[in-house]
Design a protein around this nucleic acid. Structure first.
Lengths: 262, 262
DNA sequence: CAAATGAAATTCTCAGACATTTACAAATCG
DNA sequence: CGATTTGTAAATGTCTGAGAATTTCATTTG
């Protein structure tokens, strides 16, 4: 039908700015596509809390009517929101589109792929990853020594000895798990949310073939010392042990970075 | 750009009636919708680097043919990828869908809305935000004292005095900018990428009406001290000054958190 | 009472048409 | 000649309308 269908919306669109919007030299795109406008308005409703976790939006046809666009346009908007984990859809008679609950693992996963991409293309260096990891994990270790629980202690102990593990995959998993447990024991979910993707990206840039023979023995010793301080409830000791551990890892990571060995 | 199996994948699709035991109550989700499969396969090509920044994908009709789906299905897949900033589209004769370069600001913006949502719904507490902010900003301050440049010093100085600023918006902007400059001066983009959304979320939970009269005077003093250590190239002094500053802010933030005053 | 059946609501997918945007080449005009 | 206008092609954007598939729930049936 008509060209730019007017993407209705209740009440308040800042239609102003009309004076500045048009004539500048390298013309900014006139207006956004309809699907982007629909997505943007729905996104606002979600992030401002006007519709909340678990609420379900009107079905696609109704949304189309409400916004004055076609159903396909609505669907494209919903795809955008779903890709950002703001909504999810269910089929069937009780189906529809629902406001999603954003959980830590979802955000972590996004960070993991984003940082992975950026670390590939010079957007973020290994040195920056290492520094930031230390910034997060050292305080986390201190907090873990203060807030540790018996459960955390027990599981840490189970992931302590890895140098004698034959299966490399298992060894890696236990190593990761040990660090993860410290982040969990810190009692601060945000620390783990950010640190663990960084940890993963670093791991992916790490050439296992290039580590020295006694590398895992040293890791074992470091972990044991960190653990003993956490177990003893000694924040200062735990902090400095983790700091020393990461400093030692640093040289290994830099020596084994995949970009350094083309 | 070839070799993609159609979405109606070979072999593995339970097309008709693979009536095994499967029908019982806990029905695991069947297969993904076609748009999700298309998105997922394209996403893999991007994150594994098989198609790189700036490359342009085949146009929508070609993609539809390649995957054996309709153009609308392809478009929904592309909307998903675009929402994750993995691709962008341009209209017109030289248009198409291109692999996007993921920049720090995009990831920061995502974190900002995600953490904002989670902080609203008990997924992340103010205490966690404060702890994590300190974890990032204290080391950043130390690094800034080591790596600072003349330009950074100059601009910091310009954002130093804020208690006498009348316009509240300006005062807020200068305050934010000061902390931002420290993150920039740290020379580690990842620190800022993560810290600045956390900072923003905290700000949004902060009731300005509730701060004490001399609050901004104390901020001014703190900033001045931090700055002097950075300028002097004194990492230890800068670090402890920032640590003290954030500790003082902590009580203010907790006293003025919007959830504490319904 | 259990199992099969059917109805209903919703998303999912398709096909095809037309509108819009944009870059660039060609034609036109001063 | 040079600047402006016009036209054309290629791509995305939007609409329409139709079914197909999935899932829940009520109903019927054995």
């Amino acid at each position: 039908m008509e060209g730019n269908a007017p993407v209705n919306m209740p009440a308040s669109l800042p239609q102003g700015l009309s004076h500045e919007a048009g004539r500048s030299s390298l013309s900014v795109n006139r207006i956004q596509p309809a699907y982007a406008q629909v997505a943007s308005q729905l996104r606002d409703l979600i992030v401002t809390g006007q519709i909340q976790t678990g609420d379900h939006l009107p079905n696609e046809s109704e949304l189309a009517t409400i916004f004055g666009v076609s159903r396909s346009t609505v669907r494209e908007a919903l795809r955008s929101l779903a890709a950002q984990s703001l909504v999810y859809t269910k089929r069937g008679v009780t189906g529809g589109t629902f406001v999603a609950e954003l959980d830590a693992e979802t955000v972590s996963a996004y960070l993991r792929t984003s940082l992975g991409l950026m670390s590939g293309s010079a957007g973020v260096s290994v040195a920056e990853l290492l520094e930031t990891r230390a910034a997060l994990e050292v305080p986390a270790t201190r907090l873990a020594a203060i807030r540790r629980t018996d459960g955390a202690i027990t599981e840490m102990e189970q992931n302590l000895s890895i140098s004698n593990v034959e299966d490399e995959a298992v060894r890696y998993a236990k190593n990761s798990r040990f660090h993860e447990l410290i982040l969990e024991a810190s009692g601060n979910r945000l620390l783990g949310l950010v640190a663990s993707p960084i940890f993963d990206v670093l791991k992916s840039r790490f050439r296992r073939e290039d580590v020295e023979k006694n590398y895992w023995d040293r890791v074992d010793n470091d972990h044991r010392e960190i653990f003993s301080h956490i177990e003893a409830g000694d924040p200062d000791g735990a902090e400095s042990a983790m700091r020393a551990h990461l400093r030692r890892l640093e040289s290994t990571y830099e020596a084994t970075d995949i970009t350094a060995h083309p």
